[in-house]
Nucleic acid binder design. Sequence first.
DNA 1: GACTTTATATATCGGAGTGATAGTATGCAT
DNA 2: ATGCATACTATCACTCCGATATATAAAGTC
Lengths: 181, 181
Amino acid sequence: MDVKTVCLGMLDDGEASGYDLKKHFESTFAHFFAAGYGSIYPALSSLAEAGLVDCEEIPQEGKPDRKVYRITDAGHQHLLDALKQPAPSHKVRSEFLATMCFAHLMTPEQIETVLESRVKDIDRYMSMFHEFETTGMEEWPGGMRFVCGFGKAMTEAMRKYIEENKHMLTQQTAASRSAAG
Amino acid sequence: MDVKTVCLGMLDDGEASGYDLKKHFESTFAHFFAAGYGSIYPALSSLAEAGLVDCEEIPQEGKPDRKVYRITDAGHQHLLDALKQPAPSHKVRSEFLATMCFAHLMTPEQIETVLESRVKDIDRYMSMFHEFETTGMEEWPGGMRFVCGFGKAMTEAMRKYIEENKHMLTQQTAASRSAAG
DNA sequence: GACTTTATATATCGGAGTGATAGTATGCAT
DNA sequence: ATGCATACTATCACTCCGATATATAAAGTC
């Protein structure tokens, strides 16, 4: 399940341009599968070349031509095949946790700053989830609701853990020890 | 905070070879910062070239020479600077959730298989965390304890969410509807 | 005794993805 | 009038991932 396949899945729901897909990646998919133009445009080109999507160029004045992609029958079949993968991965890449591993080399102020930025990020996600819930999430397919609920549950658990355990980081670091003599 | 910096941080705790670091990445760092030889060896070469680590080649019979890396003063200073980054990221890349977004295109059996493999993965992580706890985690620096507790809390929350919400996925999919007529 | 797996140790390479940058136009605010 | 957001495309250098290659010994298994 790479960017190509996710794009294909999004297009299975209706035609769209690369720009449209990017907005999708930034909203409902943001918390578990980010992708930028650098992956989306090459993905769409490659899908078109493989005949899994059709591309219609819609000329526009002033702006660049809008390229609208539509999934083909072969594309739909390819998607169905891709969904047969029995053990899809779930990976975390956290510079935050990597940094916290070395908390004993940081000052309490540095640690506090990092935690604050993490909590801000968490709050951004929480308001995003809240917005989903208040803008017709009930009509989404079950899978999408499951996925967003998953993100919300994880984000809440993260905030709770940080609040309840940050004392482990700020108490008695190497920096505070040397500062205190 | 890239692989290079994490290697530097590990070496701040004592000299090690690329092979040693890999084992570290596979145990305590596995749940939030995976790295393979394809990232570790180039990282070490680059750190050595920049003078942030020293390399001592220890000849061995039969096996390839063991290259032991040791952090330099410049390297330690570089690490301290890297830890000043105020907003380190925390990213999830989940083919699992991406797949679940398209649950309406899957059979209940396919969905069940995917969930089972995820739960197995969760159990592997849980027994890993359990092993950490029973093998002298109390002596670890606060940061490492925080990070492992974080992983455990997230993993537990994940299992709980899946158990309580998987019904959202298996009920009434497109496949089950058409199978039922 | 032969066979496979596991552990020790290095390293490279193709392909995938990231983040920054670039170009070009409209419209809206300050 | 200058900057900023929105709409739309696209590329490029770099980093990272996963698989693969190479070589040997110990330990388990059939």
